[in-house]
């Protein structure tokens, strides 16, 4: 085997452009801005999640021909089933955009801490989910004749959404690398996200039944712990998840 010398002249530095590696947060917000800009153009992801959510709550509205008292007990369940299914749609789409055109490789080639990719995608997914929730809540309130526009309830929904999107982003990154990602994500996600969904339903049910915050501390604490644990776990393992 022979190795030839180059026929090009000795290379000079192309120019003295400074490229210090961006910080974790700069890279994270670059990804969030990119995702929001792309979604603002296409409205593919949010519109799909929104139409799906509205259809689900309308179907439930007709399917559950219940009296007002019984409805009160199922509101939180219907709401979170809607958010969970719509969230799965969004998570799948958000990661397949990166995978289909090789953009995930583009992200992985950047000289940034790979946790920035996780945080960037998780924050974008959270933003999309919150937009959908912000539209679904008033519609749900009208259809089911219940006031969901309450600060305490919104706080619980925010906590639940943080937990759901953080674990969902991690698992959708894993499932995006398989051929059956649309099927695989819910199969992986729902069992792992079960504690966050149950705690969210429990906390929302309590609030809708008129309980005070002190009465729902158990599910609320579970939600907070779940959020912290899953964000920490994702931060630690994301590098291995994206590795080939």
């Amino acid at each position: 085997m022979r190795f030839a010398r180059s026929t090009y002249p000795t290379p000079q530095l192309i120019d003295n452009m400074k490229t210090p590696a961006p910080s974790l947060w700069k890279a994270t917000f670059a990804i969030v801005r990119k995702d929001l800009a792309a979604e603002f153009r296409s409205f593919e992801l949010v519109s799909a999640m929104l139409v799906f959510s509205l259809l689900v709550i309308i179907i439930f509205n007709f399917a559950l021909e219940l009296n007002i008292e019984v409805r009160k007990t199922v509101n939180a369940g219907v709401l979170w089933a809607t958010f969970a299914f719509a969230g799965t749609l969004g998570l799948n789409r958000s990661m397949s955009v990166e995978k289909d055109r090789g953009c995930m490789d583009g992200l992985l080639l950047a000289p940034v801490d790979r946790s920035a990719i996780f945080f960037g995608k998780a924050l974008s997914n959270l933003a999309f989910m919150l937009v959908v929730e912000a539209i679904v809540l008033p519609v749900y309130s009208l259809l089911y004749n219940v006031n969901l526009l309450r600060l305490d309830l919104v706080g619980v929904i925010l906590l639940g959404s943080i937990g759901y999107t953080s674990v969902g982003t991690l698992l959708s990154t894993m499932s995006a690398q398989t051929r059956t990602r649309e099927i695989l994500l819910p199969i992986l996600l729902f069992p792992v996200a079960m504690p966050v969904l149950l705690a969210s339903v429990k906390a929302c049910s309590g609030l809708l039944a008129g309980d005070a915050i002190e009465d729902i501390l158990t599910p609320l604490n579970l939600l907070i712990v779940y959020d912290v644990v899953f964000i920490a776990v994702a931060f630690m393992v994301f590098d291995y998840v994206v590795e080939e």
């Binding site: 961006p22 153009r41 955009v97 953009c103 490789d105 583009g106």
Partner: peptide, 23 residues
């Protein structure tokens, strides 16, 4: 594969990657 985002403009794609490289 181009590793580009179809819903962003040419300059937005470059700006995004520029930020990721800390330019």
């Amino acid at each position: 594969l181009p590793l580009l985002y179809p819903d962003l403009t040419a300059e937005e794609n470059l700006r995004f990657y520029g930020r990721m490289y800390g330019i």
